[in-house]
């Protein structure tokens, strides 16, 4: 487990370009242990690219992304067993059963069969998939497959979690369930960096980075963002979608 004062995710002025396109543009971020940090913004804002930089799936063009104190992707090997990643796609093996998927991901993280079996039972019960262990992933519903995908990321009990749009496509009840899991994990000391384009979900994060066009247009706790929006709008802005609109408008005005 990480000590509370150590930044689990940190980046200094990190930029990632694809040709002339700046997907992430000079972002700095620090996420201490146990925090749920939300990257919030519309599609194409640079959330996925930032998460991929922290995973080591992409290298920064400028600046540095650090995960658990290690530069990514250079030092990825030092931390690869300590974080879990859930890509935006429902990234599971469609032609394997629920149990076989978890077995594979457990094995590649070096878990022995006993521990995999124990964790499989625990995690499938948490995800309410306990009765689906023998069912093939391609016969699961979209929400069930998403839960399996999250289960695969959590199986090896990582210290840090990178979740790319984990609640996309889920119904409100299931979204609430997911957030309950996230808060339980956070209470247990895990650190979560997640992306979402559901602005209302920002409320559920400890802190939020509002992203647009690869940049942070605002960062802080939901209360801090509301107050920043209120001071710019000259009125109370209780709704997070309005907060985003106000802060976006003022950011565009400033630039």
């Amino acid at each position: 487990m990480t000590s509370p004062c150590e930044s689990v995710f940190s980046a200094r002025d990190v930029t990632k370009t694809f040709g002339a396109f700046r997907a992430v543009d000079g972002v700095s971020i620090d996420v201490p242990a146990g925090e749920i940090y939300g990257l919030v913004g519309p599609s194409g804002a640079g959330k996925t690219t930032l998460i991929r930089l922290f995973c080591g799936l992409a290298a920064a063009t400028h600046g540095e992304a650090r995960l658990l104190g290690h530069a990514m992707p250079g030092d990825r090997r030092a931390v690869e067993s300590r974080f879990g990643y859930m890509p935006q796609e429902k990234a599971v093996y469609r032609d394997l059963s629920v149990g076989e998927n978890l077995l594979f991901f457990g094995q590649i993280y070096g878990m022995d069969r006993q521990r995999i079996a124990r964790r499989t039972t625990e995690i499938l019960s948490l995800m309410r998939l306990g009765d689906r262990v023998r069912q093939r992933a391609d016969s699961l519903s979209g929400g069930e497959r998403q839960r399996l995908s999250l289960a695969c990321a959590l199986l090896h009990e990582p210290d840090a979690l990178l979740l790319d749009e984990p609640t996309i496509g889920l119904d409100p009840a299931l979204r609430a369930q997911f957030w309950d899991h996230f808060h339980a994990l956070s209470k247990g000391g895990r650190t979560i960096l997640l992306s979402t384009h559901y602005l209302l979900e920002a409320e559920r994060c400890r802190r939020v980075g509002l992203m647009q066009a690869g940049r942070f247009i605002a960062e802080g706790t939901p209360a801090e963002l509301r107050s920043a929006a209120a001071s710019r709008a000259g009125r109370a802005v209780p709704d997070m979608e309005d907060v985003f609109l106000v802060l976006t408008a003022s950011s565009e005005g400033a630039s």
């Binding site: 090997r77 990643y85 890509p87 590649i108």
Partner: peptide, 13 residues
């Protein structure tokens, strides 16, 4: 296509 490649890639494999 399914995204499992990225998932395997960030693992110790």
């Amino acid at each position: 296509v399914d995204g499992t490649f990225a998932r395997v890639w960030v693992s110790p494999v």
